[in-house]
Structure formats: structure tokens, C-alpha cells
Write a protein that binds this DNA or RNA. Structure first.
Lengths: 317, 317
DNA sequence: CTTTGCAAG
DNA sequence: CTTGTAAAG
């Protein structure tokens, strides 16, 4: 694998400045209509540019991962989520908020020939949380949890070792109404970072999932109104910042800096999705040294079946 | 109001022998098909004969009451129960298992011009039990409960005094899975009988509602299998028998003795309604001395919207 | 099987 | 607003 100029350049930059010029830029949401208070102007839906199939160095992607918070696996299957997944055909599928353990996974999903290797982590509490990792090829190993028993009772982390990287599926806990779980969330954020750093010491890491934080103001529609809402507190944002400062990149934002209205979650309340009043909560976070392998990161916000949409990452490994 | 021959005859009978010959007889369910064990033969749906609009003495009905266990008033409204009720146009509508108190009754029902006088009894426990009584004309008075505070916390009884009778709406408690509430049910049955007898001392009584008992073997599809099921225990049947022995009549059975497959309830489980695997749990029970005023009693088993169907009684007062 | 309420998001 | 749960029928 020859080193390519763009990759060299990227490796040379020190401040985490993301690439700009030669990556496709999504059209920013047009401003229109009334335009008074924050949120009065329509937030147009972010539109994925065509898939960039190659790295800047010209290497074609050979590894695709899709992540989706399904908000209840069984309802999601009833709503046809499986069809989209079959067409999407990723190498690995990461699912969050399954709200069930492996024993309650619908048979049609368990029998998908596309994903013969399936791993499920359920919460102790029935109908709550839960993640899944489904793979086309058998991982070297798959482990449950983040390494802290007090944080591992809710089925939120699965870690697969693959030949060239660790793949982590995460469903980061919501801080709760009234931020009742914010302190626990902070412990969680620290533990997750430690877990990723530990893994990263032996192999590069790809983390995918619902990280339950909108990092910057442009990552949610109503930043002002949500200064103390779960998912946009300083505490949560800073924890994410420490991840980025610790050798990891937010692959979507790395590719599309400054692009607004690119959300992955819309509350079911009040028809938020129809008005694109959303949040970017779902991420692929990548070890910095893998950034040269990054071809593209897609937000499939037209895809229905949950209050989150699926996201995909394309790597040339 | 001239005394009419049929009425005289009815008053003369001592053993509670119901009228037979000149009342319309419903066709008994035809036997067909396999016919092995109890329940293997199809139980054809009982079909109401045409409405008998007059008493045997020739007096036309002038008072119609409909009773319906709605199994959740709000769902029932969503399913269009109101439309049928508006066409049915009874003078009084008795509703059971509303699963809500007056404060949660859908506005479109509260505003029905047809029923300007509405009375609701909710259970202390939200979403459970509850009855309603809706009237075209204002009752003299309406009271809550059966007269025993230990039995009156669940919104099961409303009693309206009308000029010529007491009208009681009842939702008798289910004895529970495993008959865990059978003892309480027996207390309830005694208290209900006392209540009716007390009322009957001053005015004749019409009791309508879900009495949660199938009295005879022909009042349910599978009597053998349900000997110890809630609603068909000896205890519950005997309590109903005491009511009938105490000066009251089961108006449907009085009119249609021996007619099988006339059910008012079908469990949602296993498609019971489609096979008419049901129970007769809903009744109009009448003071014996009112039997001459009885024109007809109808089981509207084609009407959907609940796991019970509505029943109606037609009186010439 | 269906309705409630509830917790959670 | 939607998912799941439980209790109840």
C-alpha cells in the first residue's frame, strides 16, 4: 500500500484540522421564510453527497460498517428495518437500543445469511438499552462491556477484534430528564475513553454508535434552548472533546466540517423529523492514525424505522 | 294501561317458568362438521330474531336501555363505538370497564347531544374498571356504589332513580386468575343482591351490565373446561341463582329459554370471537313484577369495538 | 390478544 | 410520540 500525498499531508497536521478542499461538501441548509428566533427558519435536510469510494490516496474502500439506533429491535423489524439493511449490505452492522436480549431477537433477523455472526448484549432490565453486532465474517473475538462492572449491566458495549482494528459498538447512556444521571454519564464517558485508549494501544479503533452527545452547536437544531438538556451539556461535550484530543477523530465532521443540519436523531414529539429539528448523536469515531483509510461517512437521514437514522462508514483497510 | 292476557299468565306462574310459545325463538346453532369433543363442532353465532316491539299485552316499548362493556372507553371511541351508539339511540346507555374516570372521557363523547346527562364512576386505581351511565333525560338522582366502602373503590356501580324504576349499572369484579379474588367476589355478590333488594322495596329495579358470570352450561361454549374458571364457578353461579330466586329475572333467558350460543363476550386470545367461543356475561336483570313490561332483549353480537358486544332491553313502562 | 399505566427516551 | 414493560381481563 503506497503512501499517498493526501495521507502524508494529513499525518503532518498537528491541530486536528480536518481536510477540506477536495472532499465533497454538502450544500448548507438554505435560509428562508420567517427567520426570526432560533428555529423559526426551516432547517433543510442535509443531503449526503455521492459516495466517495476511495481515499484521497486513491484506495478503494473494502470495509463498510453501518450503525443504527433502532429504538426497539422488534418494532424496527416489524417496520421493515431489515429490508434496508439487506440492501445496504455492510460488512458489519452495529445496532443500539435493541431493547431486548439475544433470546428475543426475531428469528428472521437471526437467520439472515448476510450476517452469520451475531453478538447481542442485553440489559439486566428487560426492554431497556441493549446493543448488537452482526458481522459477515467471523471476528477474532467479541467481548462485552467497558471493563467496569458497575457500568456494564445495561448492554451498552460490544467490542469485536478484527484483523486490522478493534470495532466498538456503543450506546452511551442518556443523562436523563433533569440530568439525573449526568454524574454516572461522566463516569461512563471516562470509562469509554479509557477503554478505547487501551484498545488503541494494540490496534487502531473504530467506534460506532449512539454517543448521546451533540458536540458542537451545529450538531443540533436548537443549541440555545438545549444548553442544559441531556446530550448537550458542557460536561458531555467536553468529554467528547477529550476523546477527540486523545487521538480520535469524528469521521463525519472530519470530512464535512461546518456542514449544518446533518442530524441523526429527531424526537418523535411534535413532528420534529418533518421539520428536521434534530441532533447529531450517532458517530463513527476513528483512531487518528486510521484517517488515511477513511473514504466516506454517510448519514442516511431519509431512512425511516426509528427515531434515529442509520449512518455508514467506508474504509480502505 | 289494560291488563293483557299474557301478562296475567306470566304473573300466575310460580316457579319462574319463562314464557315460551308466543315469543320469537332464535334458531339453535346447527350441529355440523367433525363433532368430536366439546368444542369441536362449530358454535354458530346466535342471531337475534326481529325486535319484538310490544309486550305480550300489546303495549309498545317506550324505554330502551343499552349496556356495553367497552374494554377501555378511549380505545372504544377510537374504534368508532360512538357511531353505533348514536344509531342505536337508547334512552339510557350503560358502559362498563371504561378504564377511566370522568376527567378522561373523550370530549366528543361528553358533548353528545343525545346524552346530556352523564355520570361516571372511576376506580381509585388509574386505568382500571370504571362505569358510566348516560341518559337522554335527567334522572331524579344518581348515586355511586353499592353501599359498602370496602367494595366501592373501583367504580363498579351507578344507580339512577327514574320515575318508574331504579336503573343500576354494574361491572361485577372478575374472580381473577387462579380465583384469587373469589372470596371478595362472593362478598360482592351478596352486597349487590342486598343493594337490589333494598331498592326493589321502593321501586322496581332494572340492573344492566357485565355481571361476570355465565349462569348455565348453555351460557358459555366450553362449560366442562371452565368448571373452575372465573365466571363459571359454582360459587358465582349460585350467587346469580339467588338473585333469580329473590324476585329478579334474567330477561334474555326469560324470553329465550334454552337458546344456545348467545354470547356477549369472547376472549381476544386465539381468535375466539371468529369461532364464537364465548360467554354470556352481560345481562339485564329485572324485578319480577316488571316482567309484563318486557318487550325484548337483544344481543348485538355483530357489533365490534370491544371483547364484549352490546345488549339492549326494551320496556313498556 | 388487548387495554390500560408507567418509565424511558 | 414511541418503545418497551406489567397487570388485568
Amino acid at each position: 500500500m503506497p503512501k499517498r500525498s493526501r495521507k502524508e499531508a494529513a499525518e503532518g497536521e498537528e491541530e486536528g484540522e480536518p481536510a477540506r478542499s477536495h472532499w465533497p461538501q454538502a450544500p448548507a441548509g438554505r435560509r428562508g421564510g420567517r427567520g426570526q428566533a432560533e428555529g423559526a427558519e426551516p432547517a433543510l435536510l442535509y443531503q449526503d453527497p455521492p459516495l466517495r469510494e476511495v481515499t484521497p490516496g486513491g484506495q478503494r474502500f473494502n470495509f463498510k460498517v453501518t450503525s443504527w439506533n433502532v429504538d426497539g429491535l422488534r418494532a424496527w423489524v416489524r417496520k421493515g428495518g431489515l429490508q434496508w439493511v439487506q440492501e445496504d449490505a455492510p460488512d458489519v452492522l452495529l445496532l443500539q437500543e435493541t431493547k431486548c436480549g439475544g433470546g428475543q431477537v426475531p428469528p428472521e433477523l437471526q437467520r439472515l445469511p448476510q450476517f452469520p455472526h451475531q453478538f447481542w448484549a442485553g440489559a439486566a432490565r428487560a426492554g431497556y438499552s441493549g446493543v448488537g453486532l452482526l458481522a459477515r465474517e467471523r471476528p477474532i473475538s467479541v467481548t462485552h462491556g467497558i471493563g467496569d462492572p458497575s457500568l456494564d449491566a445495561e448492554g451498552r458495549i460490544l467490542t469485536a477484534e478484527l484483523p486490522s482494528l478493534f470495532l466498538v459498538c456503543a450506546y452511551v447512556p442518556n443523562s436523563g430528564r433533569g440530568l439525573t444521571r449526568l454524574a454516572e454519564r461522566q463516569r461512563w464517558d471516562r470509562a469509554l475513553r479509557a477503554h478505547l485508549t487501551r484498545l488503541d494501544a494494540s490496534k487502531p479503533v473504530l467506534l460506532g454508535g449512539d454517543l448521546n452527545v451533540a458536540y458542537e452547536e451545529l450538531d443540533l437544531r436548537h443549541p440555545r434552548a438545549n444548553r442544559r438538556s441531556p446530550g448537550f451539556t458542557n460536561e458531555e461535550r467536553e468529554a467528547f472533546g477529550e476523546l477527540l484530543g486523545g487521538g480520535f477523530i469524528d469521521s463525519f465532521r472530519f470530512l464535512y466540517p461546518g456542514v449544518p443540519n446533518a442530524f441523526t436523531f429527531w424526537t418523535y414529539l411534535g413532528g420534529a423529523r418533518g421539520r428536521n429539528v434534530g441532533w447529531r448523536l450517532d458517530y463513527f469515531v476513528l483512531s487518528r492514525r486510521l484517517r488515511g483509510a477513511l473514504c466516506d461517512c454517510k448519514i442516511r437521514n431519509q431512512v425511516l424505522g426509528s427515531d434515529h437514522c442509520p449512518i455508514s462508514i467506508y474504509l480502505a483497510l
